[in-house]
Simulated assay, not measured.
Amino acid sequence: MTTNHPAATPLLAVDGLHMRFGSQVLFDALSFSFNSGAVALVGGNGTGKSTLIALLCGMTAAQAGTIRVGGHDLAARPHRAKAELAYVPDESVAYGFMTGAQFLAMVDALRGRRDAAGAADLIDGFGLAPHAGKRFDAMSLGTRKKFMLVGGLMSQSPVTLMDEPTNGIDADAKGFLIDLIRQQSARRLFLFSTHDQELIGQTGAGLLRLGQPGH
């Protein structure tokens, strides 16, 4: 599956990806490439959506095939490839004792960047200003998820991978996320797993289907 953008080097390219768990084959010679835009990763439960995102961000190693981010081989040049991407998990990865502000500062430090200073618009847009000093173990699930979104989106990385980004968030936050994707998809790739048809429709996302013949 390939986008129609003319750029010589895709932002994200997968070739011959293979992954199996025991007798279950999730991916067999899965190949696709994308440049800027929005892409929804869809498929039934158990078709490997979360596994594919884990592979694309380098959390799990592929059994066969190559993944290139911004032209950099994720296996051979992981630091260069990962510098081109950001990841938003479905569930919180913050320690319970951390405040929202501390989590964002930690994410920024791990990237070796200074993106946290530019996160103010995201914090306001997701309605997080009142929660910046709150500990994660005192936050609602939706508030935790919105901090995960800010942590991923504040980097301005060319490739942003999101696992079920609208799970648990309120309507206003969802609307802000949709607007952001629409505004920035001309220069960034947003690839997200989702069951949310409104998110797909309002962002104009293309579809990458798993669990179909040939995948």
Rank of each mutant, 00 (worst) to 15 (best):
P6M: 04
T9M: 11
P10L: 08
L17A: 09
S23L: 00
S23D: 11
F27K: 03
D28H: 06
A29I: 04
S31C: 07
F32M: 05
F32E: 01
S33I: 01
S36A: 15
S36N: 14
A38L: 03
A38G: 01
V39E: 00
L41Q: 02
G46M: 12
G46K: 06
S50E: 07
T51C: 07
T51F: 01
I53W: 02
A54I: 03
A61V: 12
Q63H: 02
G65I: 05
I67D: 02
G70Q: 11
H72S: 08
P78Q: 06
R80S: 03
A81H: 03
L85W: 05
L85V: 07
A86P: 03
A86T: 13
Y87V: 15
Y87T: 13
V88E: 07
V88F: 11
S92A: 10
G100P: 13
F103Y: 15
A105I: 12
V107K: 07
V107F: 04
A109H: 07
R111Y: 13
A116K: 12
A117E: 11
A117L: 15
G118M: 15
A119D: 10
A120Q: 15
A120R: 05
D121W: 09
L122F: 08
F126Y: 12
F126R: 04
F126E: 04
F126S: 03
A129Q: 10
A129Y: 06
G133M: 14
K134S: 13
D137G: 09
S140K: 10
G142P: 06
G142V: 14
T143Q: 14
K145M: 09
F147W: 08
M148V: 12
G151P: 11
G151C: 10
S155H: 15
Q156T: 12
P158Q: 09
V159G: 04
M162Q: 12
D163L: 07
E164V: 12
T166Q: 05
D172S: 13
I181D: 09
I181K: 01
Q184A: 10
Q184H: 05
S185D: 04
A186D: 10
R188M: 01
R188Y: 01
F190E: 02
T194F: 00
H195K: 12
T203G: 08
L207E: 13
Q212T: 14
